[in-house]
Design a protein around this nucleic acid. Structure first.
Lengths: 122, 122
DNA sequence: TCTTGACTTCAACATATGTTGAAGGCCGAG
DNA sequence: CTCGGCCTTCAACATATGTTGAAGTCAAGA
């Protein structure tokens, strides 16, 4: 029976930082802003599940196409507790669609500028 | 003979702001950071040429695809004093290429994540 | 159990991207 | 020539995205 076990929250801040290639302070920052989620130990330390590092890596690439941390957190909010590949697939599509829309807006503005002669040139 | 006259710097901060849809403070900010250029009157007031508003509009759209003001200024640095449509064409291509590269990086990372099973899911 | 490295919070600092307000100067219409 | 509106600079504030350091706590191995 491979019923999906509920997610294990075992990784420390330092481990997620090392895995994702960012500073521990950034890991805390992303948690504060909803990009990743944590449980707490009885001693109040954060423990992350396995997908935390991955979320952070995706977030860093998404920031490069102009998404804010808030926007990324909103997209990730669609992910259930223990995301299946299909869940990630939907997130991936959302992110790519957004990136393409923004590129399309840039392209449209530039092309409008060129067709409407003398919008930018003297 | 229509030899191109050298650019006329006649527009005030307020005029450029109104034309480009940003606040006067933003116009000054963009000038400080090299997105637009100005001459000064004998009384030290800024005077912009006709392409200033257009540069700002392009800059705003480019910011949406993740380019920083510095990066945008660098791209615009390729524009000569009185840019011809071809000059804008090259700038447009540079901006779009950059946006597409960033989207491609996002796409590549997401697809790598899905093919390398269990990178993100438990 | 004890130690020590990693964790906690909080505040300050840093950079990017602007906005706002004060104090004063420029300029064009009358 | 004067006056009102727009311009100037500068400093402070604001938000986003983090980093750093201090002071103190937790947890895992010897």
């Amino acid at each position: 029976m491979s019923a999906r076990l509920s997610t294990a929250y075992t990784l420390t801040v330092g481990e997620v930082a090392a895995e994702s290639g960012v500073a521990p302070s950034a890991v805390r920052f992303y948690e504060q802003h909803g990009v990743i989620r944590a449980e707490r130990t009885s001693g109040d330390q954060r423990r992350f599940s396995a997908d935390a590092a991955c979320r952070i890596r995706v977030a860093k690439v998404a920031q490069r196409v102009g998404l804010t941390v808030r926007e990324i957190a909103e997209v990730f909010a669609a992910l259930p507790g223990n995301p299946a590949p299909e869940d990630w697939g939907r997130v991936a599509e959302t992110l790519i669609r957004e990136a393409e829309q923004r590129t399309a807006a840039l392209r449209a503005y530039l092309s409008e500028m060129r067709s409407g002669e003398r919008l930018c040139d003297l």
